[in-house]
Amino acid sequence: MALLELHDLNKHFGGLHVTNSVNLALEAGEIHCLIGPNGAGKSTLFRLILGEHHPGSGNIFFAGENITALKSFARIHRGLSVKFQVPGVFKGLSARQNLEIALQSRHRGAELAQEIDRLLAFLGLEAEQVQTAGNLSHGQKQWLEIGMAISLKPRLLLLDEPTAGMSPEETHMTGEMVQRLNAEGMTVLAIEHDMAFVRQVARRVTVLHLGQVFAQGSIQQIVADERVAAIYLGQAHA
């Protein structure tokens, strides 16, 4: 059964048709990448899924439930979680406190402290735990926010450009982490421009263009698609 289904989703910003009758079904357990040129409507689609924007028409189903009218926090309670494009950490608080805020609704007391320690170790941020999150490097902020997002133990993890600003090694490590999380049963939907990352993790790829689903298939099919090369991947992959 599909974990997430988008039915005929439409969104206008003034005269701009940013999401144009998008249909998308995400199977439980898959890693799905969303690619497309700038302005294709990828981040808007994320905001619609998360409830930050509301669609003009269309429906969103999560695990069979229509969540189109639910508020964002309620969608998170259903099992969604997100890492934003611009790292959304609590800049004035320590890295440890960032994770505490993410974890405190599931754990208390000594158990909470243990969970934070475990997550810090998993993210490789043990040495930075007392640092103010705003002073971390860009990559570390990305990791910290990914940590907050996965600490909710979501059924579906949305990643908006998880590897932006990361070195090739860091990108590869992020890819491995995503695969590990997926092996534990987490479904992942990622927006990504880094094709190395997409090749590494994606089982299926959807190309968005001008607010519409332009192409969909395995990474091999997408890379081989001349129409995709023409609008997005360009000569580098042709």
């Binding site: 926090f73 998170i76 979680s81 959304g88 950490v89 609590f90 800049k91 004035g92």
Partner: peptide
């Protein structure tokens, strides 16, 4: 405090 620092993130942690 989380809401002061980043309301969007706080909501997306389920608050």
């Amino acid at each position: 405090v989380a809401i002061r620092e980043n309301p969007e993130r706080a909501e997306m942690l389920g608050y």
